[in-house]
Design a protein around this nucleic acid. Structure first.
Lengths: 244, 244
DNA sequence: CGTAGGTTTGAAGTCAATCAACAGTTGTGG
DNA sequence: CCACAACTGTTGATTGACTTCAAACCTACG
């Protein structure tokens, strides 16, 4: 069961995610400049931190593989989860305004990221206006995404929230070209509950219901969607905007 | 009771809000360039729209006086309120990523705004790196602010939410140099309820309680805070970060 | 001065949380 | 590789914070 190390040089030009990363809309020459400042780290294993709350803000991170959760602690020292980041997502933009990271970011699985030093990105952008537009656009999407998340938590029932969450994960995999009706999602039910502002008990009860109704099955980190239409209905008719 | 029109030329250099607007940290020469692209509109009266959902995105708006609410409609055609904007706040940043405004923005009172055409702002910023930093910073603050708002709605009780809302309004007036224990706030209880994800009935009941306990009084658009310490306690010990 | 929209107050209802007990899963050390 | 401990997930009974429904009372403004 030894792994054979596959050796190739990752770069922005050959990255399958460039359409949804900073690289979107850049010319080849600009792309190679962006490529040069990206620091490609070795894989993080489960439980390793990208950054912690209060640390000096230095870089943004683009997720290339795996999954990252962003969280803080409430006054009872319980985790409050602000989001899950999958390949193509950018982590850390909320910390630009401040000198330090605002939250904790931890790998949920074996995860690879591109580290993008913010100072250098910012410098490069002064020479590449398209890059600025791209950063603005991503930040603006983050604001709208955050408003939509708030609507999800406040306007929808527990059942709708969970159905929407799973449906949007499925959509994400679909947009990345993966199978979207059966995929691995290494997120604890407890963490999903926290993200959706529910208790693990409630999540468990709703999953039991979905399973009974043959809508979907979530066992051992593996999600199987059995009835997409039905799932969408549970998510609520006026499905929220999904950025991708 | 006729008004005497006071005639003077408003500009960024003499604006009392420059520290919290885009102008923050700019040199005099850059400031005058920013000043030139700002379009100062005549006052809006109550009920006039800055923009509507779906309209082409052209400009950001800095509130100079009055109040603006940002909202959309839910599936029952009821208003969902995303925020209130007071002097010094910037409206519209969530729409940068898209070609069109994402929400409705309406004046709640007689309101004056500076219209900042986004294309021109963006062009100017390519020549003035400090301006870029300032835009990034404001957007990043908007993201963090949005996360904090979500925490408020999901982690706090109805009583804490309302106490925090009033307390943060008071702080805002304080930071702008106004009296912070007695001020006019032309926001309907119904709108506050919507913003805090409560019903008007619940807001009414809690205000009755605060009034009975001599914590504060909110009658006829006028808020009087009688016991600041007590109000802060009702808002919850680990008071949320307030950006200003 | 009258009326429509906003607010208040009380009674009844509900969704999801909490509490509690058990079952299944994972990971670790002997 | 098994055994045990610690963690994670499930299920049922009960509770509570806020909503919903209903009706009366303001108050702003034509």
């Amino acid at each position: 069961m030894g792994n054979i190390a596959i050796h190739y040089t990752a770069n922005c030009a050959n990255c399958g995610l460039q359409r949804i990363c900073f690289a979107n809309g850049l010319h080849d020459t600009d792309l190679s400049q962006l490529d040069e400042l990206v620091n490609r780290k070795p894989s993080l294993s489960k439980g390793e931190y990208l950054f912690k709350e209060g640390e000096k803000f230095t870089s943004l991170f683009a997720v290339r593989a795996g999954a990252v959760k962003l969280f803080s602690y409430d006054h009872n020292n319980l985790e409050v989860i602000h989001g899950f980041y999958l390949p193509g997502d950018i982590v850390g933009m909320d910390s630009i305004a401040y000198q330090e990271y605002q939250f904790y970011a931890v790998a949920l699985d074996v995860t690879t990221v591109c580290e993008i030093p913010y100072g250098q990105l910012s410098d490069l952008a002064t020479q590449v206006p398209n890059l600025y537009s791209q950063i603005f656009s991503l930040m603006s999407q983050e604001i709208v995404g955050s408003r939509m998340y708030t609507s999800l938590l406040t306007q929808k029932t527990a059942e709708q929230r969970l159905a929407y969450f799973i449906w949007s994960m499925s959509l994400k995999y679909k947009s990345r070209g993966y199978l979207h009706t059966k995929f691995r999602l290494n997120i604890l039910h407890r963490d999903v509950a926290s993200y959706l502002n529910l208790t693990p008990e409630t999540v468990s009860r709703i999953l039991a219901k979905f399973n009974k109704l043959n809508v979907l099955n979530w066992k051992k980190k593996e999600i199987t969607i059995l009835n997409e239409e039905h799932l969408k209905e549970f998510a609520g008719e006026d499905a929220l905007i999904c950025s991708e």
